[in-house]
Amino acid sequence: MNTLLSIETRNAVLLKMAVLLERERKSIIAINKTDLEAYKGDDISMFDRLKVDDSKVDEMIKAVTHLASQEDPVGVERFSFKHENGMQVYNKTASFGTVMIIYESRPDVTVEAAGIAFKSGNKILLKGGKESLRSNLKIVALWHEALKEFGASTDWVEYLKFNRTETQAFLEKPTQKVDLIVPRGGERLIAFVKQHATCPVIISGRGNNFVYVHKEADFDIALDVILNGKSKISACNAVDNVLIDKNLPNKQAFVKSLISKLKEIKVEVLGDDRISKEYGLEAIKSDAVWYEEFLDYKMVIGEIDSNQNTIAMINKYSGGHSSTIVTSNDAEAKLFMENVDNAAVYHNASTRFTDGGQLGLGGELAISTDKLHQRGPIGLQHLVTNKWYVHGTGQTR
């Protein structure tokens, strides 16, 4: 087990990482180009996540610099109690120990997620996808250079070059202690990890997110929120489903405008029975479509007759990620936000804000759709467990 590094050392490594990322910027982008050229798949969102350009490197640098400026999440007192026998009791945050991150195609995770885990005193095991291997190994080499500079063991950041079979074997019988696993990727990856892991797993479920246009919605806000929700199709906080209140005044004008704006940005628009008939759209094949996370230029529009039915529908079909109500009625918004069972609920704002940086956490390891032990974006302060410190003078019970 690695002895906890001082906060000064952890911050120094993070700041050094920022310097190294800047120094190696051209080299990282060039190596990533070889990963992009070798990628033979046709998944546009995978390709988008795999790509590293100048703005991605800027984000990586910003992530580690910001992490270095944040308070130490380890050893924070959460509770204290003076026992009647004189013992002093504290509950304080503590690092998990070893965190394994399994992810697809995103070299920025090798910086941001590893940085969050490292700052919170954890050893990191990185298992990236084969499509980003060259980019990831380059970034891990920089982690090792930064660690060595301050006399810290390179064990703190370890890259696992495993194929699927080796990953399964490691999950079922780890060759070293693993305290927490965070899979970042699609449904298949998450199901695979859940099936084989022998330690706690934080689930980042599907982001088939909903926008409900209530009958008292502002048209401009509704259009902006829906279109912004489709501005990055590879993101788990993108919008896939729009439910429109059948009592919306001037509903036809709104729906026609929405469809034409979506088609302008090359989004394929499907409709439920009522919407497809009325507006000449392709009809969905079955209600199972509402369960899907598209990660594509695709959206489903349906008609619904009340807020209560919208809540029930979202709770049935959504992956528990994010949903928005567009309305000028605060009581209806409150009803929706309190009863929709999602990690993030919005009133008159885009689901694209479900992101650690945007919600004030500075960055995120993943977005959890689980309820234990943290829900929504997992920031620095959530990548810790806790333990009890009890100081006595010989007390016995």
Rank of each mutant, 00 (worst) to 15 (best):
P73F: 02
Y90S: 11
Q395A: 14
F210V: 02
G207H: 03
N329Y: 03
Y291G: 01
E338M: 06
A94E: 13
F81E: 13
T98P: 02
L372C: 12
Y159V: 05
K298W: 00
Y297D: 06
F150H: 15
T310Q: 05
S234K: 12
G75E: 07
V201H: 04
V52W: 01
V201T: 04
R23P: 01
S234G: 15
K148P: 03
H196F: 02
R134A: 09
L20S: 04
A331T: 12
F210P: 03
A146R: 04
P377H: 12
T396D: 15
I139P: 01
V57C: 12
G362L: 06
N386S: 15
L180S: 00
F170Q: 11
P174A: 01
G151K: 12
A343D: 08
I221G: 02
H373M: 14
N91E: 14
S132E: 09
I244D: 08
Q358A: 11
F81A: 10
P73M: 04
D48G: 13
A141I: 03
F79R: 13
S55Q: 14
Q88I: 04
L5Y: 06
N2F: 07
S6I: 11
H391I: 14
A30H: 09
K26T: 13
Y291M: 03
I61N: 06
Y90T: 12
A333Q: 08
A12W: 05
L380A: 01
H214L: 02
T369C: 09
E364D: 09
Y103W: 07
Q88P: 05
V89G: 08
L295W: 00
D296Q: 02
I190F: 01
Q176F: 00
L133W: 03
A38T: 10
L14R: 04
L223A: 02
V140K: 00
A38W: 04
N11G: 09
Q88C: 08
V255H: 00
L335I: 09
F336N: 00
N250I: 05
E37F: 03
E187Q: 04
Y103R: 08
R375M: 13
A18S: 14
Y317V: 02
G360Y: 05
I275W: 00
I28T: 10
R397C: 11
W388R: 15
L142H: 04
P249V: 07
K261Q: 13
S276G: 04
G379D: 11
Q88K: 12
T9N: 13
S276L: 02
E282L: 05
Y159T: 08
I116K: 02
H347S: 06
S27M: 09
I284M: 07
Q374S: 14
V157E: 04
K316A: 08
A333F: 05
V157K: 00
D287N: 11
F353N: 10
I202D: 02
M313F: 10
I233H: 15
E158H: 09
D245C: 11
Q381N: 15
